[in-house]
Design a protein around this nucleic acid. Structure first.
Lengths: 116, 116
DNA sequence: GTAACTGGTTTACCAGAGGAAACCGGTTTC
DNA sequence: GAAACCGGTTTCCTCTGGTAAACCAGTTAC
């Protein structure tokens, strides 16, 4: 029998790169909680801080910037008395749903499996 | 209108924990390439090193230990002349397929979107 | 004028992820 | 006995992700 190292280098690296792209976008401690919180609707900065347990302001603003850069989140500055800023998930941001759902499903199953 | 911070704390934290579990298991630079390489069939240590571009022996052995701990990979020591060790994906390891596929799909789409 | 609230930025610090290279015990070949 | 191959482990180093806390500009209430 022959150990096959060959799995079409091109298609394979494209595949891995795509997976890595996705992982990078979702990486870090806070991306998922933020997306999760925003999936319930648009929220202001302070509301986000309150709704995401333990996050620091710097982290939130940094993560929101990255998410905005990647087109997953839309930032809107409102012309109010003290300036308020609203963040919301773009349609593109919502397209992550299937991935997040798959991960939630597998993770739940995994925890049950580990317990016994 | 009312900014709703309440999204059922219990169900929500369970959900996020499950997602985090999955992310943790897949985290790091090498888990996916290793799983990807093993998804083509069982491989020996040296073959894995050769098939995963850029990985160091230390990293590979550490990551394999974690994957084995989580029941995703099975390690078999063969009684050969110089001891050889075979690694293979367990059935449970294969259950990650849907997640990985979703991520590959989304990542590919995302890259195309970013390009234009 | 002073305080408080808005949405941040800046600085300084720390733990952990990952990389490079040496080392190791056992076995076969020369 | 020397060298090479196997599957690691150990040590040391660097670089990054994340934290805490101070600071900032603009606006309103007191």
């Amino acid at each position: 029998m022959n150990d096959n190292i060959n799995h079409d280098p091109v298609a394979c690296s494209t595949h891995h790169r795509a997976i890595r792209d996705t992982m990078d976008i979702l990486a870090g401690k806070w991306k998922i909680p933020i997306i999760g919180s925003l999936s319930f609707g648009k929220k202001r900065f302070m509301v986000l801080i309150a709704s995401i347990d333990g996050i620091a302001a710097k982290m939130l603003s940094k993560e929101l910037q990255e998410l905005e850069l990647n087109g997953l989140v839309k930032r809107t500055v409102l012309n109010t008395k003290p300036v308020t800023v609203e963040y919301e998930l773009t349609e593109y941001g919502h397209s992550l749903r299937p991935i997040i759902n798959e991960m939630a499903f597998w993770g739940k199953q995994h925890r049950e499996r580990i317990m016994k």
